[in-house]
Amino acid sequence: MSQERWPLWEVFIRSKQGLDHKHAGSLHAADAKMAIENARDVYTRRMEGVSIWVVESRHIHATNPDEAASLYDPANDKVYRHPTFYDLPDELKHM
């Protein structure tokens, strides 16, 4: 008997038109077609979705948490990227 198993897939679901697909969870399936159907049966039983993406888990590349400081901390002092950084008179409307 083969020891191979159905690969793991990550499931992303759009809960309604206009919203992004969001990670819902994972599941096992033999191929992409089956992964989509399994995702439909497992993750949209309570009207949670209108669109499904699946991707085999091994195809996901991720950042390393050890590098979090060098990757994300430098953004901390760039507050000038946020609109509230700029001090403007209250009389100025619609900006």
Binding site: W6, L27, H28, A29, E37, N38, D41, V42, R45
Partner: peptide
């Protein structure tokens, strides 16, 4: 035969 399909057939 596997959880995913148990759920599918129950549906």
């Amino acid at each position: 035969p596997i959880l995913e399909q148990d759920i599918a057939l129950s549906n």
